[in-house]
């Protein structure tokens, strides 16, 4: 295989890895503070992408042509919307079920994901068909032999990595992050120390969901398409990535995201005659990994108290 094609695969893999890591970080944050899985995460991402798309249509309708202005508006509106949505989900669906069996939260958010997905399919104008997402980034490209490095890809990956680093700094270096980590460590102690528990949970859900919106916009810009079903697969991949990495560990989530993208890329390279099987291959490997390391590559803290 020639170098150019390999480079293309690599660039694509890095792009996917960044997206997956962004989704996985959300799962990990939620699991960190509440020990719950919010499976509607992928569909919240889809809502973010659709909000972004709608915002763009609105911006165009009022006559603003500048793509950078549009991009900023799209990002701000969609991140704010999903952040609010995430906090609402935490407040009304997740927190009320905290004392119920943990599986119930997984179930209720799975069902919510279905409801969001179906809601967009049924009620968004022509929602069952894919929408062409605008190319808001410069598309100039640098040709290196048969490999072309596109400016928009570079910007997307850099921005995505910047967001991940930013999130990491937020969690590890700020007072808010300290409060989040305190709640994740021990809810009771955090409460005694005067941390507003509910508020921290809501903020964490808002942050994670905002990151998902960012990934959703990234996805739309990269593929120039959004559709109502995009969240299911991305959510599942993010979930798998978080689980492979070991839930509750932010580095694990990033590792998992890139690992999954790597698997898909390897699948596509190794099975060129059947690149359609790349998802089958990637999920097959996830299942095998779970058989080998039942609590992820970076083990979750042991929880069963006797």
């Amino acid at each position: 295989m020639d170098i150019g094609l390999l480079g293309q695969y690599l660039a694509n893999g890095v792009m996917l890895g960044t997206m997956y890591a962004l989704v996985a970080v959300g799962f990990t944050l939620f699991f960190g503070v509440l020990d719950v899985i919010k499976f509607s995460h992928g569909d919240v991402l889809m809502i973010g992408a659709f909000t972004g798309f709608t915002t763009y249509l609105g911006i165009v309708a009022i006559g603003i042509e500048n793509p950078w202005v549009a991009l900023v508006a799209v990002l701000v509106v969609s991140i704010a919307t999903t952040a609010a949505l995430g906090a609402l989900i935490a407040r009304y669906l997740v927190l009320p079920l905290k004392s119920a069996p943990p599986l119930n939260i997984l179930l209720i958010t799975l069902m919510l994901g279905t409801a969001l997905r179906e809601g967009v399919r049924l009620f968004y104008p022509d929602g069952s068909n894919p929408k062409a997402f605008p190319a808001l980034l410069p598309t100039a490209s640098l040709e290196l032999g048969s490999f072309s490095l596109r400016a928009d890809s570079v910007i997307l990956v850099s921005a995505g990595i910047a967001v991940i680093i930013g999130l990491n700094l937020l969690i590890n270096r700020t007072r808010l992050g300290l409060a989040i980590r305190a709640v994740a460590q021990d809810e009771e102690t955090a409460k005694i120390m005067g941390i507003n528990y509910t508020m921290i949970v809501l903020v964490t859900f808002a942050i994670g969901s905002g990151a998902a919106a960012f990934a959703g916009i990234m996805n739309g810009l990269y593929y120039n398409e959004v559709n109502f079903g995009m969240g299911l697969l991305l959510g599942l991949i993010g979930f798998s990535a978080a689980i492979i990495g070991g839930l509750g560990n932010i580095y694990g989530a990033i590792l998992g995201g890139f690992l999954f993208a790597g698997l898909q890329t390897v699948g596509a390279v190794a099975l060129p005659f059947a690149s359609a099987y790349k998802d089958v291959f990637a999920f097959g490997v996830v299942i095998a990994l779970m058989a080998w390391k039942p609590t992820g590559l970076i083990a979750e803290r042991s929880s069963d108290r006797v």
Partner: peptide
């Protein structure tokens, strides 16, 4: 799927069956 399903618990085992469900449909389609 038995090995991963039996060895894992709770949400970990959920990911195994969800992945399998999606994998199965994708497999049929391609």
């Amino acid at each position: 799927l038995i090995v991963p399903v039996v060895r894992t618990a709770g949400h970990y085992s959920a990911v195994v069956t969800i992945a399998f469900g999606v994998l199965f449909k994708t497999f049929l389609e391609v």
